[in-house]
Design a binder for these strands. Structure first.
Lengths: 188, 188
DNA sequence: CTAGCATGTTTAATAAATTAAACAACCCCT
DNA sequence: AGGGGTTGTTTAATTTATTAAACATGCTAG
């Protein structure tokens, strides 16, 4: 009782500026099929639905992850408008600052401006969230541990990994380290 | 875009220690249906599949997000290892550099180190990709236009928007501008 | 060894989705 | 006002999925 296939398909089709016939042709089905599906008067087989979505194109996974379209929100953020995420970081040692772009309501993308004081350390070893995560170092040096791999990154260096692997950040230098990171979907 | 519904269902069913008949009863379908689906000899309608998954229980979204563990990949990237994305930028004016973290194969997250020379301009107005996009300015100034909104961002300032809205970046200052951006899912 | 019960597979009848083509409504253009 | 093009909707014919019941195999107890 939780997923309205017809409405979802219609919404997606219209977002892509396609008519029923246009989509039908790209998908290799008839326009009638699309019409009936959108009215929930027929429940497509997954093979049909896959064909239809290939005309978008969109994966079945995307289709069923009902992330609804975000309403018009704030686009630009002044330096001072980034929101500090101080609370959540229980295991951390030393001074760490995570400043987030926007409030993420309805978003898949989280962008952070991170700052680590010398010696600062996220006890994140235990943390594994269901995301992908990456970033680029802007200033200073950071030691990053991901699973059984460890490396020190300098300005301009970068990282990208699956957040389900336990990971940890540690500033082993003697100046502040800044980096800009992204995460999808957001970690809290 | 090849999704083996039968194999996936069988895998899930067995992980939950259910026989075809046991699952069939909980789901309100017959065992034959499950057998045929698992052999890919019939492609269930999404209403049937939903019924079946309710017997697990599991959502359609979970079913189709085939969360298989990613193969071990490169995690750390030296400054010089970022890959230049020079080719794709047809409409651009002036000197622009997009340097990407990793090659993105199998990833949802794209992270770029972008550099705009004074006067550089992406003719991106026409571009609308199916993503969410955001970033933080590191150096210099950039004018960002998103839909009918425009703003000049300075170091520390940030942005976050739905990439389906037409957008454009322009360096209106007289020094190089650098920013770090992220995009999900990747734009090419 | 065999009777009983579980498993997954197959088959003919039935129910449902998909097609092909026609229908009605709306816009735009001359 | 009317054509020619679009749009989404509907209907009968066809294809496909689903059912109900039989079939085959393997396991275990007596």
């Amino acid at each position: 009782m939780d997923f309205d296939v017809g409405t979802r398909l219609k919404q997606i089709r219209e977002q892509h500026g396609l008519s029923q016939r246009a989509l039908a042709q790209k998908a290799g089905v008839t326009n009638g099929t699309i019409s009936l599906i959108e009215q929930n008067r027929s429940s497509p087989s997954v093979s049909s639905l896959r064909k239809v979505l290939q005309g978008i194109p969109m994966s079945l996974a995307e289709f069923f992850s009902s992330d609804d379209l975000p309403p018009p929100e704030q686009i630009f953020f002044k330096n001072t408008e980034l929101v500090e995420l101080a609370e959540e970081l229980k295991g951390t040692v030393g001074q760490v600052s995570f400043r987030q772009v926007g409030d993420l309501r309805g978003r898949n993308l989280q962008i952070l401006h991170e700052r680590y004081a010398p010696g600062a350390d996220t006890g994140r070893t235990m943390l594994q969230h269901e995301s992908e995560e990456g970033g680029i170092v802007v200033k200073g040096k950071i030691e990053l541990t991901v699973g059984d791999r460890k490396q020190i990154l300098a300005p301009g260096d970068a990282y990208l990994f699956d957040s389900r692997i336990p990971h940890r950040f540690r500033n082993v230098g003697d100046e502040d380290c800044e980096l800009i990171s992204a995460c999808t979907p957001p970690y809290l």
